[in-house]
């Protein structure tokens, strides 16, 4: 049971954010109205995605250092989980954008950047499937993963700040701080982010263990 503490903590955080996210008072803002509550559910997806991609790149580096297959498996399953969260984030963002900004795909740098980052990791999976030999596949995909990561960081964190964006915190728009300073939003938002990061790591962990079992089975 002691090994499961972080899974339980993450679950409690997510459940807490569901209840308080729906019930707690939120600032009254034009255009957003009640949909500001999406902040508790849509934004944590991105945080989870970024954390999980960081885990992927760390494990790719560890693979190159040690040549231990385990790290390669963690890296690939992290990318798979990251893609899942990326797609959920994109789709939920499109629904929200359709309501607040008038179209599912407003020409917003953050949206475009997120889509391109997703493309980058899809390219990673294509690269993996094009290689047959296990050691070579692990090595080359690890190299591509490490190579692509700094570019993704520029894409997600630097480019949107250079151009005007509809998202808060970019292009002169106020950040989250301006909205939730006068309210309890922080008490919901931060646990939600931590909870979803935990859930993402958990899913990754499960996928990694399944893949390890599959590998053992394939070797027999």
């Amino acid at each position: 049971m002691s090994k499961n503490w972080w899974k339980i903590t993450a679950s409690v955080f997510v459940l807490y954010s569901v209840v308080t996210g729906l019930l707690l008072k939120v600032p009254m803002l034009p255009i957003l109205h009640e949909s500001i509550r999406n902040l508790y559910f849509h934004v944590p997806m991105w945080f989870a995605m970024i954390v999980i991609y960081t885990i992927a790149v760390v494990n790719s580096i560890r693979y190159l250092q040690t040549n231990d297959e385990k790290y390669d498996l963690i890296a690939v399953e992290s990318v798979n989980t990251g893609l899942l969260f990326g797609f959920i984030g994109l789709l939920s963002g499109m629904i929200w954008a359709n309501f607040t900004w008038g179209s599912p795909w407003p020409n917003d740098p953050k949206l475009n950047s997120a889509a391109i980052a997703t493309l980058m990791y899809l390219a990673y999976t294509v690269l993996r499937s094009s290689l047959d030999e296990e050691q070579k596949r692990a090595k080359i995909s690890a190299i591509y993963n490490i190579f692509a990561f700094p570019v993704m960081v520029v894409l997600l964190f630097v480019l949107p700040r250079l151009t005007d964006s509809l998202h808060p915190g970019n292009g002169g728009n106020p950040g989250f701080g301006a909205y939730d300073l006068d309210s309890n939003m922080r008490f919901v938002f931060y646990p939600a982010v931590l909870g979803w990061i935990g859930i993402a790591i958990w899913i990754m962990n499960i996928r990694f263990r399944i893949r390890k079992l599959e590998n053992i089975k394939n070797q027999i």
Partner: peptide, 13 residues
């Protein structure tokens, strides 16, 4: 093809 797939996401920014 692989060259194009791998390079496009990196070159777009």
């Amino acid at each position: 093809t692989l060259m194009a797939i791998l390079s496009f996401p990196v070159i777009i920014p």
